[in-house]
């Protein structure tokens, strides 16, 4: 995920915002089905990797898309890539970066 904000939020603030968005949209039961967890967060690059179950991927994508603020400051979170394993995700992102660079 890429965080589009003027100042990078702290990891806790980011994950709390995502949980809040999921709970608001799908309720506590829906949120519990996502098995969501923050894997890595790079505040300088404003990128994060989160884990979720495949069944709730689309719900999580929708919930993340509804985020318009973090810490009451205007922000957006975009999903850059989705993959089954961290290794494949890294490869996917690398390919994306090379393609963007060429373009």
């Amino acid at each position: 995920m890429r965080i589009d904000a003027d100042e990078p939020p702290e990891a806790k603030e980011l994950i709390n915002t995502i949980w809040e968005a999921v709970t608001k949209l799908y309720g506590e039961h829906g949120a519990s089905l996502t098995s969501m967890a923050l894997i890595t967060y790079n505040a300088d690059a404003k990128t994060a990797v989160i884990r979720t179950s495949l069944e709730t991927l689309n719900q999580l994508r929708a919930a993340i898309a509804t985020i318009t603020a973090i810490r009451n400051k205007e922000a957006a979170v975009h999903v850059d890539a989705v993959s089954g394993t961290i290794k494949a995700l890294a490869q996917k992102l690398q390919t994306q970066n090379v393609t963007q660079h060429k373009a």
Partner: peptide, 23 residues
């Protein structure tokens, strides 16, 4: 009304699932 409210196409599609539009 502002660029931060723009969403990726797949994010728009995911949001559309909220009103029963298939992927």
């Amino acid at each position: 009304p502002n660029p931060r409210l723009l969403r990726k196409p797949r994010e728009m599609a995911a949001l559309a699932s909220l009103f029963s539009l298939g992927e």
